[in-house]
Design a protein around this nucleic acid. Structure first.
Lengths: 356, 356
DNA sequence: TAGGGTCATGTCACCGGTGACAGTATGGGT
DNA sequence: ACCCATACTGTCACCGGTGACATGACCCTA
């Protein structure tokens, strides 16, 4: 490997001069500059970033810890983070925790050992200590999507509760009475918030959530599928449903297909998280879109402000969601003979007009 | 920052002993082991991976260069690579080239300077030199999805030509005569291969591709949309179409919706690349699925074999695609009055039975 | 012309581990 | 009593840049 000393020897100057030429900082005579550049060219010298990291104490790396980088939402966050990072001469190290606190902990430790300059994380753990370690090392941390309020680090979130409340309001206005929700593990802040929005909407309309209509299951497609199957088996069966994220929505849709339940006529559906294809699904799915790319970019902005020395203890940035009304919501059918009619596919059922 | 020397001082041993205890290798008395461990605990010592990288010449990093990490296909590749990498104590550095050769070149240079231990890349450039640089530095390179045959590095690909040929065969068997393709930039190996499969199928059936029925446009949703618009304007209009990747498919579908062209009756559609949601689109999209996760994992396997000293010059691994027959393909309508009938939505049209 | 300032360049300790090598102690064999 | 193997522990140069500091040349001014 050709190092700065080789270049120095080859161009008959000191290493300091080579460094000065390369950095462009400082006074070096034209003559030497030429010689150094020539040597660099000839030897194919590339400065070793590892060595530089060691002396300067900066790796120009930011670690990203998310549940799953292959989830389109997090992939989009990653892209936003990456674009912003590259502008600052940084690169992104990825880590998927798989919603496994041990795996997450290992990732955080590994990133700590690698002395990444900052960590952007969608936490799985509920233990503040696991992330507090980084702060004690003065490694800036930025939360994305959900945060641990006990940890004094900035967070980029969305208005989870409010978005769900508005979605449920919409369904209630369409005339729905029994609205279900497929949520995630309750110790997740996002799940708690979205459930809170769900409850708030119910409260505002002086109604109570029926038993079994709030599903808090495992995340992932199969979890969504299982939850929807359960919802379809409850009596009274809900006429509408809000799901927690894109994967659960896909699972829920799959279950609906398999049970031949018509959307939106027998079941209205709203997805938290939008996917481009939701617009092309049958029927197009009404969704609460999160600005994933912007969330990643905003997290990067916070990271770099902190790296610039700005003290940002626990500022929370709420980015707006976008409620994208599509065809998966309609007024509920009011069946003459309750359950059986609904299952028969709409015969003997009358559409109830929405409240005004 | 607490270093190995601090631990050594604190436990009154030498740095070598600390290292030996931590590495678990070698003979250290129980007494000292206990003291060292206690000091490590007390000081919260974490070995600095940067320093280790410098001395050992290994960063335990693998760089991943893809067009866009937020494309679900590449995100899935990344996940496959990551999972395998983590098993080996490695982490993944991501870089999105945006199909921009300059950006790609910068990424490769940056990864080179960081002395990543290996690079996995879906190349955008056609210039072998840009990647040859890495090889001269003895940095293992593995191509994924497409490769530069002039560069002596292993590649993980799919049977592009064959998959498209089979897809087109399927359409021809359904009775289609004018089948279009929306492909990508022709200097991409994948595009060239898939187009070759397209041509091969035509050749096998002694037919010629009609003018305008082979679209090679810009990748991305809007490119697919534009290409499909053009296809819809050609006369005779194709009755079926194969699109190059998931984004082009989404664009094509969007254009079809907007023109109110019924799929599959007026236009059958096959997508190269599958997405979970394609199964739930109206109609479910027949797709050629690539084993993205496995491709990433396989690339990792090659990387680690090379890092273990194995010489793998240009072995090409072809992973099988999976042809997922769904509802977006049907026999073509044969209209009595050509164009106008087709646009009117199927009136006056007769379904032609497939060839046997 | 001595003193001070500026510019150009060189020297070298240091960042934090690593591992080759050296040194010391202990015990067993003869 | 001596030799040597073995077990344990310490020293230090090195990885490749960096930057504080030193050095030397030159010019200007009092």
């Amino acid at each position: 490997m050709v190092g700065i000393r080789d270049v120095a020897r080859h161009s008959q100057v000191s290493t300091a001069t080579v460094a000065r030429v390369l950095r462009g900082s400082g006074q070096v005579s034209e003559e030497l500059t030429r010689r150094v550049l020539a040597a660099v060219e000839e030897l194919g010298y590339v400065p070793n970033a590892v060595a530089r990291s060691l002396t300067r104490g900066r790796t120009h790396l930011v670690g990203l810890v998310v549940p799953d980088i292959s989830n389109p939402y997090f992939a989009e966050v990653a892209r936003g983070l990456e674009d912003e990072a590259v502008k600052h001469g940084y690169h992104v190290l990825i880590g998927s925790s798989d919603l496994n606190t041990n795996r997450e902990s290992e990732l955080v430790s590994a990133f700590e050992a690698r002395t990444v300059d900052a960590v952007v994380i969608t936490p799985t753990t509920a233990d503040p200590e696991q992330i507090g370690r980084l702060l004690r090392r003065r490694i800036p941390v930025v939360f994305v999507d959900r945060h641990l309020p006990q940890v004094p680090a900035p967070a980029v979130l969305t208005d989870n509760a409010d978005a769900v409340r508005r979605a449920v309001d919409h369904l209630i206005e369409l005339g729905h009475r029994d609205i279900a929700m497929i949520s995630g593990p309750e110790h997740f802040e996002t799940a708690a918030d979205r459930v809170e929005g769900f409850r708030a909407a119910y409260r505002a309309h002086h109604r109570r959530i029926r038993r079994g209509h709030l599903q808090q299951g495992h995340l992932g497609v199969s979890g969504g599928q299982a939850a929807m199957r359960e919802l379809l088996a409850t009596r009274p069966r809900p006429t509408a449903c809000v799901s927690f994220n894109n994967l659960l929505t896909i699972g829920a849709l799959t279950a609906l297909r398999e049970a031949k339940v018509a959307v939106p006529h027998e079941m209205s559906l709203i997805s938290f998280d939008d996917l481009r294809l939701f617009a092309l699904v049958d029927p197009p799915i009404t969704a609460i879109a999160q600005p994933a790319y912007d969330m990643g970019a905003k997290a990067a902005e916070l990271v770099f402000r902190m790296l610039d020395g700005e003290e940002i203890d626990a500022e929370t940035t709420i980015l707006p969601t976008d409620f994208r009304l599509r065809a998966s919501c309609a007024p509920p059918l009011v069946s003459t003979s309750s359950v059986t009619a609904a299952r028969s596919g709409g015969n003997g059922a009358v559409r109830r007009s929405p409240r005004t």
